[in-house]
Each structure stands twice: as structure tokens, then as C-alpha cells.
């Protein structure tokens, strides 16, 4: 046996070198100032937290309350995205408005306000535009009812016009001789009519 040790990755090293390397490795593994590899990070820490965007707040039980979600789905986020507070805060994670508005909703809820009181409070503070749909009063009623009313009125007008057209357009009674008189039996004519109706769809 020679003095050389032959291990994978090291060639022609003697015992002293081997022990030196071993001690160095040991030192590297315990020295706190030496840069660690990604895999040797303390459990649960991310290598680059910045990559994941703004740090998130842990979800609380209140965040998932149906009543809170329902309130937030009726209120608009003021960041200009056009989404409601709930959708914005659970979608646009760069938005700083919707988390603040969410906290405002929670604070009002904790203060014992009802859903309607919370919504009314938002309207007082942020204006009607803070609602996802305008309240059903005043001019807004025109907004809600005009399309449906217009369709209904148009349907009535269309019905009247169609009645007039059908009266004018109905074929005048023609003094004709039924083809049956030229040989077809009523049963045959009836069958022909049924066949034609089938084709005519």
C-alpha cells in the first residue's frame, strides 16, 4: 500500500493533505460567515424573498367570513382596476389600496356595524363610485330599468306591427279548385300536407 490515498475527486494526496482538507471542510461547515448554498438554508427560509413580491399577511378566520366577502364584492377598489375589493386583494398582489380597504371593512365589522352600515359608510367616505353597482334610486333607476323597459316596449311595438303586417300580408282567399278534385283523395292530401310541414321546418 502506498502513502497516496485515492478517492474520487482527489488524486495523489498524502495523509497530511487529506487531514488538512478534512479539517478545512469541517471548518467551512460550521463557520457562520461562510456563504451557504441554497440547499443549506435554514428550513423554511426563501433564498430570495424579493422574488415573491410584497410580503403577504397571514390569512385570518375573518378574511374568509362569507359576510366579509359579500360586503367586499359589493365595494369597488379605489386603485382604478375596476374590480371589487375582494377580487382585487386576492388577485392583484401589487395593489396597496385593496388590503387597506379590506382592513377598513374588518375594522367596521369589528366595531359591530352591519353589512349595510359598512357599505353606507364607504359611500359616505368614498362616494357612490365605491359601489360595484349604482344604488337603485334617482337617476340610477333609469340605468337599471331602461334596457329591460326598452326591450319590453319594443316587443309590444313589434307585436303590433307584426299583427298589422300579417293582416295586410295574409294571402287573399283564392277561388281555387283543390288539387284533390283532380284525383287526390282527402287522405292523400292530408298525408302530403303533413310531409310538406315536415320539410318546411
Amino acid at each position: 500500500m502506498t502513502s497516496d490515498c485515492r478517492i474520487v475527486g482527489l488524486s495523489d494526496c498524502n495523509r497530511r493533505q487529506f487531514l488538512g482538507l478534512f479539517a478545512g471542510g469541517l471548518l467551512l461547515s460550521v463557520h457562520p460567515t461562510i456563504r451557504q448554498s441554497v440547499d443549506s438554508l435554514p428550513a423554511g427560509r426563501l433564498y430570495q424573498p424579493d422574488w415573491a413580491g410584497r410580503p403577504a399577511d397571514p390569512v385570518t378566520a375573518k378574511d374568509n367570513l362569507a359576510v366579509i366577502q359579500a360586503i367586499e364584492k359589493r365595494l369597488r377598489c379605489t386603485c382604478g382596476c375596476g374590480l371589487d375589493i375582494y377580487t382585487c386583494r386576492t388577485t392583484d398582489f401589487s395593489c396597496t389600496y385593496s388590503p387597506a380597504l379590506h382592513r377598513e371593512v374588518l375594522a367596521k365589522y369589528d366595531a359591530g356595524q352591519t353589512a349595510q352600515q359598512i357599505i353606507d359608510g364607504f359611500v359616505r367616505e368614498h362616494g357612490q363610485a365605491s359601489l360595484m353597482a349604482p344604488p337603485k334610486r334617482g337617476f340610477n333607476l333609469v340605468g337599471y330599468f331602461l334596457p329591460g323597459t326598452a326591450v319590453l316596449v319594443a316587443a309590444v311595438i313589434l307585436t303590433v306591427v307584426l299583427r298589422r303586417w300579417t293582416r295586410a300580408g295574409a294571402p287573399a282567399p283564392v277561388a281555387g279548385t283543390p288539387l284533390g278534385a283532380q284525383g287526390a283523395t282527402p287522405a292523400e292530401l292530408d298525408r302530403l300536407r303533413r310531409e310538406l310541414e315536415g320539410l318546411n321546418t
Partner: peptide
């Protein structure tokens, strides 16, 4: 109704001087 809902915020601002949002509920 789609056109009306889309333009209603502008109309509301013109008529009642108030901005409104017309979103999915409407």
C-alpha cells in the same frame, strides 16, 4: 343594455354630477 351599462358612468356624471361604477352585478 351592454352599451348602456358601459356608458352609464359617463352619463351619470353628466346628468347628476356623480361618478358611479357599473360592474358585474348591474
Amino acid at each position: 343594455s351592454v352599451l348602456w351599462g358601459t356608458l352609464f358612468p359617463i352619463l351619470s356624471e353628466l346628468v347628476q354630477g356623480t361618478k358611479v361604477t357599473v360592474g358585474p352585478p348591474f
